[in-house]
Computed example of a mutant assay.
Amino acid sequence: MNFIPETPVLLAYVAGVVVITLTPGPDMTFFIGRAIAQNVHAGLAAFGGALVGIVFHSLFVAFGLSALIVASPALFTAVKIAGAAYLGWLAFDAIRHGSTFQISEKSQNPRSMFSNWFQGLAINLLNPKIIIFFMTFLPQFVSTADPYASGKLLFLGTLFVLIAMVILVPLIALAGQFAAWMKENPKVTRIVDYLFAGIFGAFAVRILFTERG
């Protein structure tokens, strides 16, 4: 099929995606946190939102839309500030309410599946580092002179989603098993709240210092 890269290129891509997927980031921190805080379905919903974000990024790359963001200082800055502000808000909310890892009995209003899904999507779409990653990573495996370049980029983006599902769905399922233990240890959950806030705060700072190009 014309949209499938040659085997050596495909194997190199798969190896790269596996390493990237296993590297912790804002997405992984969030949906695993939701699995622990609420249940496995909440974690999967957040993960589903992140996957939709990956699909959007793949489409942006395939049709050249991400290039506009990277090329435009004003648009890039707007996305960067929005992403950092959103992660910063999640960090603040975790300290104030313990909303992400709060699994004690007083939590009577768990987030809806749509809320978890939407937050996973927002964290993914509002991170300019992901935009830059897809702009620089996917094109390495497709020649600009290839007449089927757009189709191959879409294929690689879809493959990224499938690999992420194979690796991360089991991790989310296992994360949910810690919920019962953490309910019996409220001090631990509060420590995790601060850890979560620290991680997301660090990601927010890193996003602010992300450069174009």
Score class of each variant (00 low, 15 high):
63 F>K: 12
86 Y>R: 04
75 L>Y: 15
125 L>E: 02
71 A>P: 04
93 D>G: 00
117 W>A: 13
144 T>F: 10
133 F>H: 11
86 Y>E: 03
93 D>L: 03
81 I>G: 04
74 A>C: 08
63 F>N: 09
90 L>I: 11
151 G>V: 04
149 A>C: 03
150 S>R: 13
101 F>V: 13
85 A>T: 02
81 I>P: 02
104 S>G: 13
113 M>Y: 10
65 L>T: 14
89 W>S: 07
147 P>K: 02
91 A>M: 07
120 G>A: 08
103 I>R: 14
125 L>S: 08
70 V>W: 07
131 I>M: 14
76 F>R: 14
118 F>R: 14
101 F>M: 15
122 A>Y: 03
150 S>E: 06
85 A>K: 02
123 I>V: 12
131 I>Y: 12
144 T>Y: 04
98 G>T: 07
71 A>Q: 12
153 L>V: 13
142 V>W: 00
98 G>N: 09
100 T>R: 02
117 W>L: 10
140 Q>S: 08
149 A>H: 08
66 S>V: 12
59 L>I: 11
91 A>G: 00
128 P>Y: 11
156 L>A: 14
85 A>R: 01
126 L>G: 04
156 L>V: 10
137 F>E: 04
60 F>H: 02
143 S>F: 00
146 D>C: 01
152 K>A: 06
111 R>K: 12
60 F>V: 02
